[in-house]
Design a protein around this nucleic acid. Structure first.
Lengths: 332, 332
DNA sequence: CCGATATGCCGAATCGATTCGGCACGGTGG
DNA sequence: CCACCGTGCCGAATCGATTCGGCATATCGG
């Protein structure tokens, strides 16, 4: 492809040694005198030698790359980008590339991957399903649910339930009583969506202080500012004092809408919170999942899973935490 | 890696033919009778044969993958995620994977890539610099500026200047006079940042209606809600009536802050706009760069550039447009 | 001075696919 | 009947690196 690639043989010729010796000298593996090793190294980077990955991987039957697969309907979110870079950064430390999978189109090359990290897969996610069938090790981040009983090699989950309960309780302690959960319709079938719903319902129905009420509202995929404004207005009319968003980005839009609806409602103390790792809000707490670290953890698990045939393990990710806006404690 | 990989030889044995014939039958290249071809195909997918990419690519010296490289300080933005998927989707149509590059750590494997798409590279971006030196075809999206005079194979740019001028004029027609440009310090050295600055200064100093004033304000990398609120308050004090943000995400925060600062200022008609492809705002226009299409375009250019030694071409991306909030026209 | 051990290096096979040149066979035309 | 050509298939080299077994030469104990 390039003008001319420098191969091991070129280096060997340069120093008058066999390619065996050169290979061993560079990898530090065989029995090679220190002096020779040095000479080889010098020649190698004088010639600009860069070992050919393909050849190496072919010979050693080693992994070339792993795949990153996000939830189709929401994969653009900043959260997932951070996550993906967490994966890629970790994979690089063991010399492996991370390729972006684009839905089912990626399946043909997907079979060649050493493993795949699937974040928040939907129910019966076709990509995950096909990969598991093809015996590719898959780390599911968030549960993968299959109507055929297929299982991911490893499942990694954050402690959503605990964190969400904490968040709700915090709102409760600040005096919030009328809660509303805002989510994104059934577009996203990932497990965390329905889980969040359950946690919310359980808590508002019996877990929290007395006098609680909880309602749910769903939005279309990319809510327009107008639809969110309408929702905010309606929430105010109904006396809602805490809006809890279940999808990244929605909370920010909600606060934005509050600005527009204006009429001092913003300062009336209505709190906007988020279950889903938003950037910090101004009016309420947010769950921060440390996506980068989360991704790196997933990659590490995949690495383990590739080493030995896995058993469908389940692992908790402990890096999530609650973040309150500064000074939020003083109010209410 | 997997239980056992089915190779060409396995298929050959199965049908009692040589691997040459099998290879040719499957690729449809040599002289093989239709009947044999069919038999081979059947055997192949009965055995679940999937050609080994590494071997194929090694033999044919073909491209395995291209790389995606974003601007270090801002690569998490949703915009870039969309862009990256645009690249990956397009690359997939020609059977090529897209790998995520993680800064300089990716350089060793980067040399093995068929090409790289570098979005908004910083001045003397070390990754781009190294790649160009290593003769890897690079498509720079947004100008790559090098103090050593290096050039990307192809440069793709959106019509930032025109779009930004349009945006400012639109604000001007709505009656805005005191402008402020909000950017993110010198952390991001990508060309579009300083370009935006110039457009803004040029327009506010002589391009727009009379009575204009323009000022600039920069923020730290991840501005806290508090710092943005402070900025909003100060802007109000100074009588600013249009805040133009130069970085994705900042505008949203600004509108959020307006909600907090409250006191009917929000409705006072201050407009928040954005140069940088924010999600729609409620109070002002935004430049939408169609990141997915932008990425796909970049990938297509890379494909061309890999085919024939490129010449440092410059291409305009015409997919950008202005988006106004609904009903914004009526106010002001 | 001799057999044993250690050291430094190399030959050749291997990973899995692609590809060029060539072999054998059957048919055609003169 | 022979020269010639098209068809269907295969052998072997190749891509670039890794790795095992082995061959000299040097070193050492007795």
């Amino acid at each position: 492809m390039n003008p001319r690639t420098v191969t091991l043989i070129d280096v060997a010729r340069r120093v008058g040694l066999s390619r065996t010796t050169v290979s061993e000298a560079l990898s530090g593996k065989g029995r090679v005198s220190d002096e020779t090793r040095e000479r080889v190294r010098a020649a190698a980077d004088e010639l600009g030698y860069v070992g050919n990955r393909l050849a190496r991987q072919l010979r050693t039957r080693s992994i070339g790359a792993i795949g990153y697969h996000g939830p189709l309907e929401a994969r653009d979110l900043e959260f997932y980008m951070r996550f993906a870079f967490g994966v890629a950064g970790e994979a690089l430390t063991w010399g492996v590339d991370t390729v972006l999978m684009v839905g089912e189109d990626s399946l043909s090359s997907g079979r060649q991957l050493g493993g795949v990290i699937a974040v928040d897969p939907g129910v019966d996610d076709p990509v995950v399903t096909a990969l598991i069938r093809a015996q590719v090790p898959v780390v599911a981040v968030g549960r993968y649910e299959s109507s055929e009983g297929l299982r991911a090699a490893v499942t990694l989950e954050a402690r959503h339930a605990e964190l969400q309960k904490d968040l709700l309780e915090r709102l409760g302690r600040k005096g919030c009583r009328r809660f509303e959960l805002w989510g994104m319709s059934a577009d996203i079938t990932s497990a965390f969506v329905s889980d969040a719903q359950h946690v919310f319902e359980a808590w508002t129905s019996k877990g929290g202080p007395s006098g609680l009420s909880g309602a749910t509202r769903t939005f279309a995929k990319n809510p327009t500012p107008e639809s969110v404004q309408r929702a905010v207005r309606e929430a105010l009319d109904r006396g809602v004092d805490a809006i809890v968003c279940g999808v990244q980005g929605l909370a920010t839009q909600a606060e934005q809408a509050l600005a527009q609806v204006g009429d001092s409602a913003g300062r009336a103390g209505i709190a906007v919170a988020s279950f889903a790792s938003d950037p910090p809000l101004a009016t309420g707490p947010v769950i921060d999942l440390s996506p980068r670290e989360y991704g790196a953890t997933a990659a590490r698990l995949l690495s383990d899973a590739m080493a030995e045939p896995p058993v469908g393990a389940h692992v908790w990710f402990e890096g999530g935490r609650l973040v309150d806006p500064q000074g939020w404690g003083q109010r209410a």
